[in-house]
């Protein structure tokens, strides 16, 4: 926050956007390949890369103090934990 950041220029936003479009195209293509069990994993993986791009560049997380990154990480961590703990029931019932 204290450092001057020009958001690495507005041009970089356009590059990020192009990247997001390419990743969307990839994920649609990959889904058409019928990878079986791996299709979900790859879909979520690509979605996560896209999410990180949005978070880091569009939402400026790359330039923010660690506190804000920690706050967001807390939500993801909590969600992961509750899903895992619920699955201790769902998988073994």
């Amino acid at each position: 926050m204290k450092e001057e950041h020009k958001d690495a220029g507005l041009k970089s936003y356009v590059f990020v956007w192009l990247g997001l479009l390419v990743l969307t195209a990839i994920t649609i293509t990959v889904a058409g390949l019928h990878l079986g069990n791996f299709s979900t994993v790859t879909a979520v993986l690509i979605a996560t890369i896209k999410a990180l791009l949005v978070l880091y560049f569009f939402m400026h997380l790359k330039y923010e103090p660690p506190l804000l990154r920690f706050i967001f990480a807390a939500s993801v961590l909590t969600l992961t934990v509750i899903i895992i703990l619920t699955f201790t029931d769902v998988w073994f019932r």
Binding site: L85, T88, D89, V90, F92, R93
Partner: peptide
């Protein structure tokens, strides 16, 4: 009616 595994973990 939750799973046994889940019960001992909790």
């Amino acid at each position: 009616g939750m799973s046994d595994t889940s019960r001992w973990i909790f």
